[in-house]
Structure formats: C-alpha cells, structure tokens
Write a protein that binds this DNA or RNA. Structure first.
Lengths: 202, 202, 202, 202
DNA sequence: ACATACGGGACCTCCCGTTGCT
DNA sequence: AGCAACGGGAGGTCCCGTATGT
C-alpha cells in the first residue's frame, strides 16, 4: 500500500516509457491507449489502476520521465565537458545521431505534448513548462560555473533550450540534421563569447 | 474572374483562414472539421468539394497560407529596418505582443502541424519543411544584404528561425514572453557581431 | 427536342454502359456517381441532365441495357444452335470464359442490383424482375420451338435462368468455373430429356 | 463459463443474429451499424469490442451463423426424408413459406453478402464460398447415401444449391414463389432420375 | 493487479441531390 | 449541355472513461 505512493511497478514503468516514445513520434492526441498497450505489451486492465486520472495523468508522467532523462544527460554533458560550449556540442551531436539512426521518426516528447494540448489540460501544460525550466536551470548552473553572472546565464540557457527545440523541429521537418548542426554552432559561439567576456571582466 | 486562377472561392478562403487559426491553437489533430465549419460559417458539403484530398489537403493549404503571411511580414520587417538585428527585434516584438494580447492561445501553425503528423502524411510534412525554408531564405537574403557571406548567412537564418520557433514554444508553455525576449536579445547579439565582422573584413 | 425522348446521346450511353459494368463488379450501392464519371469520362454536370430521377433512374437504364444485351445473346445462341441444350451450353460457356478472363471481377448486373435494393426502390425492383422474365421468355420460346409444351417450357426456362444466376453466384464466390460447368451439364440433361419426351409423345 | 469458449457474449450473439437478418433484407452495404444497434438493442460502444476487425468481421460472423443454420436445416431434411428428392422438396417448400409470410423481404444472407463485396474484402468472400460449399457437402452426402457415385453427387449438389440461390433471387424479384416451385420440381426430377439410374446400375 | 465488457460520443470521409452560372 | 459549388446527412472507425468480475 504505502509503496504504491511512488507506484513504480514494472507495468507502470513500461507504460510510461512506451508513452514517452509514442508521444515523440505521434504527439499526445496521436497516441492512443490501444497503441500503448500493444507496443508496451502491458495489460488493458492496468490502465485504470495505474492512471486513474486518465490520459492526462499518463501524459504528465511521460513528460516528467522524458524531462528527467534529458536532464540527467545534460548534467553528465556538463560534468564531462571542459566548457559549456563543449557540453552543448555533445548534447546536440547526440541528438542528431539519434535523429538519423531513427530516421527522424522521434522528436521531443515535451514539445510534442506542449503543442498538442488545449485549455482543458492545464496541469499537463504546466508540467511541460516545468520540464523546459528544469533543463534551463541545469544549463544556467553550468554557465554560472563558468563565470557567467546569473541573469545572463539564465537568458543564455533559455536561448539554448529554445534553439534546441526549434532546430529539432526544423531538422525533423526537413529530414536533415543541418538545422541542428548550424544552430549548435551559433549557440556555441554565443556561449563562448559570453564566457570570454565574463573571464576578462573578472 | 481573376480570382478563379487559384480556385479560391470565398468559401475555400474562409476555410483556410479558419484552419490556420485553429491549427495555431489546437494543432492538426486537435482541429476537427466540425470546429472549422462552425467557426468559419462554411457549409459541411463544401469540404469535399474544396478539399477532395481530405484533411491533409486542408493542412497543406493552411500551412502554405500561414507561411506566406509570416513571410510577407518578415520581408516588410527587413525592408523597414536599418539592420537585420532591428528587423529581428521587430519580428519577435510583434509576436510577443500577439501572444500576450491573445492570452497565449495561439502559436505557430506550421510548428503545430509539423509536430502532429505521422509518417502517413509525408506531403504535409514536406509542406511544413518548405514553409520553414522560405522564412530562412528571406532572412538569409536580408543578412547577405548586410554583407554576411552566403553560407554564414544561411546558417544564421536557420538559427533565427529555430530560435523563434523554440522560444515561441517555451513562451506558450510558460505563459510568459520572457523566453522570446531573451532569445531575441541573444539572436540580435549574434547577428550584430556577424555583421560587424563582415564589415571589418571588407 | 423530339429526339431527346429516347435520350440516346453519346454521354448518356457511356454512362449507362459504365454503370452496367460497375454494377456487375460493385453492386448498386457500391457504385457511386464519382466512380461512374471517372470511369466513363463523362462530365459531372450531365448527371442531372440525363438522369433527373437520380440514381434509381440510372439503375433502371443500366439494368434494361444489360437485360437487352444478354437477351440478344440468348436469341443468337438459340438461332445458331441445333438444339436448346446446345444453346444452353454456348451460353454458359461464354459466361465462364468471361469470368475467367476477367478474374471473376464481374458478375450479373441484374442480380447484383436485385439483391442490393430496399423497399424504397420498387420501380428498380420490378425492372429487375422484367429483365429476368425477358430471358425466361426467350428461352421458353426456344424450348417450345423444340416441341416442349408451353407450361413445361416456361418452368424449364425459369429453372435455367435460376441455375444460371445461382451458379454464377457460386462460381464468383469460389473463383472457379466448376459450379457453372456442373450446373450447365445438369440443365442440359434436363432439357434434352424434356425434348426427347415431347418428341416421343408426338 | 462455458459460453466464453467462443467468446459469444449475449451482446455479440444479438449483434450477429440481427446482422444476419439485416443482410438478408438489405445486403451487406445496405446494413449500417446504426440499424444494427437500433434493431438489436445493443450498445454502440460494444461494436469495436466485439468486432475489432470492423464490419467485415461482423459479416464473417453473420455469414457463418447463417450458413450453420441452413446447414442444420438441410441435414434434418435429409434425415427425415425418405429420399433426397423429398428432402429437396421440404427445403424449398419451407423457404417459399417463409418468403410469402415475410412478404418477400428476406432472402439469403450469404448471397446478399457475396454479391455486395469488392476485392478489398477477400476474407469475407471466401467465407461465403465456404458457406456454399458446406451446403453442397451436406447435399452431396445425402445423394451418395442414396447410391449416387461421388463426382455425380457433388455436381448435382452444386446444381441444387445454384438452383436454390437463383430461384430465390428470381422469386424475390418477382414477388412470387413460382420460380422456386418450378425450380424445385425440375431439380427433384433430376435427382430422382439420378437415383433411379444408380439403383438400376447396381 | 488484471480482464472483459459497456457506453456514448466524435472523428474524417463520402455520398447523393440541387442550385445558379456559364 | 455542362459545371462549380452548395447542403445536409450518414457511413464506418476509433477513442476515452467506467463498471463489473475475477
């Protein structure tokens, strides 16, 4: 009973992962429970049990799951990189590789959900917002660690996330990694200059 | 007489405009014919007549319509601005104003459609791709007119469109214009440096 | 004006022929005006002109057309054959050849229409009935010419038409000409015995 | 408990029976889900549950159901009759009685479906084919039991089924039981002669 | 924790008939 | 004679949430 608070049963986990993947490919509305139980191999009857709040609850869980995964990856990029720009490069390069290897079928689950909801699902919307903010926070901290002052770091982080989502969108539409590559270069330039300036100002 | 060239009857035009608006708010799947005929006041029976190709044909027309509108606006921004950066500022500022005045209900129709389609609608996907490319082309020409060499101009233009789409997404999710404003500033900085460099290199 | 009584314009004729073919393949309800104008290459606008009575009028014309064609063929079979049984054989053989060469796609338009109508189209139903009766009449006359007395000839003719329609149905479903061949043999036997009996009775 | 073997819930059974009746009267395309749920009193939502394969799956079930019913009746006719011809007479007589008492509204569901399908529903087509074959098989066995050798019995059985379907079609179109009665007589004659011959050959 | 079944609604597509304008 | 456009309706499919038994 008590442990069902976190509700991380195997079935629930599989559903969330499948939902995350399906949202990336088909969007929120484009993903049906039917698809989900078929792809994840989970039982129909568990839907109500694990997600009494309906599809929105699944959406929230999947977005949070996806946000966490990318957040961890971002942190590891920053830790292993010698500069924020290098971390940025690693991030974008990993994404373009995935894009190509999966034939541009999968994009960003959070973006897909964020653009596919109406006013009736405000909780889901704010979950998406929080996901974006968490990524910005991680990036901002990384930039601050390189000496960039807070407001500037925050703005740069937001720009990076925006550039990431936007260029991912463009690359998927064009079925080419060029937009992501070009955007990555531009953002790195921006970040390196900011780092350089803050260093000289010190 | 003359208007029958592109076969745009009044009804068809109204449908396309309504679709463009609804796609901005609800996405592609989230927009139903029911909504469309109600909002546009057009007759059910005209659907098949004007769009025998079904919803995808409507999507294509609406995306092209939206792409044309923004393209014209971009051109006018570049014409009236003293520098590409200023044009960028005008563009983003106009968008944030719209966002706020419409309570963040409407986003970018092209992005909404691009993220909401599956593999069965490849024509629609390529239409979205062309829309993005047309905007990049306009921006790239503006940057070249300021002395930035072609490949660099193209890459910057792509970054700007990516930044626009991404920050619009973030702003809508957060219900705040901050992401767009911060991204606009960063992009302007990037563009101004590029212009400065190309000028000094001359 | 005057000649429009028979209304045999080129367009009307093409529509009727196409309808006859489509009814054979898809039935009455399964045939749409759209298909008809596409396959026949006739103009949309001519529908109302040539068939103001709607689809039922087209159905009547097509059934009568088909009935006339088969009637003529039956008569020619009887004329060229040395006995009714031989005529029967020719008739069934010609049909099985068509079936095979057209991959069992086309059946009998009259049967297809007769089974596909509801109570609202009683005129069409009686047209189908008349078509069947005309074939029976032709066969009955042929049998009488071989000396079979009227009531018996009529009953045999009905049996032949029933056997034809039924075995055609079976052959199409099974995608094999066996049912038609076997039925043809049985009917020929029946007819030959009747002829023999009437001859010995004379 | 036991009934869940073939997964025939009460609802599913009611749907199949209603479909069988409606197909007899209106054909396959002429029968809509709307009609079916209204007449059978079953809920809309159960459609997808019981027939996830759509209308074709319903058609298959209804055809098999109808084929089984007639098959059982045929067997009982053969068991209770002193000769195959007598069984044939019982069969046709029962059908003409039904026809008249129901004002010629209902025909043969299998024939109606077989004539109303296009190439996209090949499974349904083969189901109809199997239904016809099952009836032929039953009749053929009955004829063999009367001493008629196999190939001949098979051919005669096919002729009987063809005559049955064809004359039913004619009777419905003419709104008269005469075609069925006349065909029945002719088929009985045929069968009796075959029986006589095989008996004398013995 | 799972499974079968219900229940209503909405979706997109397509159809057929009619109306004014060439 | 021909045609684009209108107009309403119904077709089949699918979805999401819930209820009832294991």
């Amino acid at each position: 009973m008590e442990r069902s608070v976190t509700s991380d049963s195997e079935t629930r986990r599989r559903m969330i992962e499948a939902a995350s993947r399906l949202f990336q490919a088909c969007g929120y509305r484009g993903t049906s429970w039917r698809q989900l139980v078929r792809e994840s191999g989970t039982p129909w009857g568990s839907i109500q049990h694990h997600f009494p709040g309906g599809k929105e609850e699944l959406g929230i869980a999947a977005v949070e799951h996806g946000a966490g995964l990318l957040g961890q990856f971002l942190e590891s990029c920053l830790v292993h990189a010698s500069s924020p720009a290098e971390a940025l490069r690693t991030w974008f390069a990993a994404t373009t590789e995935l894009l190509e290897s999966q034939d541009f079928k999968y994009g960003c689950a959070v973006a897909a959900v964020a653009l596919d909801i109406d006013e009736s699902t405000s909780t889901l919307q704010s979950t998406c917002s929080k996901a974006f903010e968490s990524w910005e926070g991680i990036l901002a901290r990384g930039l601050q660690n390189s000496g960039i002052p807070q407001p500037r770091a925050q703005a740069l982080a937001t720009t990076c996330v925006a550039g990431f989502e936007g260029s991912l969108l463009l690359s998927r539409a064009r079925r080419s990694v060029d937009p992501m590559r070009q955007t990555a270069e531009a953002l790195c330039e921006l970040v390196e200059q900011a780092v350089g300036r803050s260093r000289s100002a010190r």
